[in-house]
Design a protein around this nucleic acid. Structure first.
Length: 269
DNA sequence: AACGTGCCCTGAACGC
DNA sequence: TGCGTTCAGGGCACGT
């Protein structure tokens, strides 16, 4: 389940193998992903790779004519392997490079995507995304504004990509616990004081996970070099019915918008 | 505009 | 043992 930190660490991991190298071929074994790049575009991708960037959980492989946009979905991960390495189950796409290496997308559940964004255009799926959580445009004023008219549970609003990107279910649970906010609280009822706690919690939690992932990551060219789930300590996620690490009472687990939600009714208000 | 629900997908865990 | 069911989850599409 790549969340934003894992996507960013993947970007850092694959970037040295892609930037300033030439993309010579795209091998598609499985096109039935969530979205698929037009075939006529695939035919023109023999181009140098300028850079690898990230927007939300999308990776952008920048070419002179536009960007290949990858999304890892729920179960996707990337590996860099020598050209010709036999494909295994769920190895759906290869980007073959002039260096003799290949970027390979493996995605068991196929919630991932490969898209194309022509130079100078923003793909419709990326056009309406909210601010990056680690940027200055994600701040207390912006979040207060986004929460102002929303009576939906704050956790669901936080996970809305139009409000802020990259806060998935795990981080939403963790951040709300750390900020002492009840996930079920209507977003518009979150106090200024709580917002002032929440914004820095999100930033530091994500930044710390990226930092840990970056140090965990050794060599993306090894099959096992993918970043696993970071050693970060989860305080509430996956700990329903277990004691709260802060106060010891039993953590509640409910479903909110069909997502597992864990919280402490004593520590969160 | 805001909100709730459905759907895509595989594999693991669980129940009978 | 071998079914069938449920769950996990990002995020868009759609109906109200």
């Amino acid at each position: 389940m790549p969340e934003l930190p894992e996507v960013e660490v993947s970007r850092q991991g694959i970037s040295p193998y892609l930037e300033d190298h030439h993309l010579v071929q795209v091998i598609a074994r499985q096109r039935q992903l969530r979205w698929w790049i037009p075939d006529e575009v695939l035919a023109q991708l023999n181009q140098p790779i300028l850079s690898v960037t990230r927007r939300a959980k999308y990776l952008l492989i920048q070419l002179p004519l536009g960007d290949i946009v990858l999304h890892l979905g729920m179960s996707g991960h990337l590996k860099v392997l020598p050209k010709g390495t036999p494909a295994t189950k769920h190895d759906h796409v290869d980007l073959v490079l002039s260096s003799g290496m290949t970027l390979r997308l493996n995605d068991t559940r196929r919630f991932g995507a490969v898209l194309w964004q022509p130079k100078g255009e923003v793909h419709p799926l990326l056009a309406k995304l909210g601010p990056e959580p680690l940027s200055d445009s994600f701040n207390i004023e912006q979040l207060a504004d986004a929460f102002a008219k929303r009576s939906t549970a704050v956790k669901q609003v936080l996970m809305d990509n139009h409000v802020v990107v990259g806060v998935g279910n795990i981080y939403a649970n963790e951040a709300l616990f750390k900020a002492g906010i009840l996930p079920t609280k209507p977003a518009k009822e979150v106090s200024l004081q709580q917002l002032e706690a929440l914004v820095p919690v999100i930033k530091t939690t994500l930044a710390e996970a990226i930092k840990q992932g970056g140090t965990t990551l050794k060599d993306f060219s090894q099959a096992d070099g993918k970043p696993g789930y970071f050693a970060q300590q989860l305080l509430v996620y996956g700990r329903g019915a277990k004691p709260c690490m802060a106060c010891g009472i039993i953590l509640n687990e409910i479903r909110l918008g069909q997502r597992s939600t864990v919280f402490c009714s004593h520590c969160q208000h």
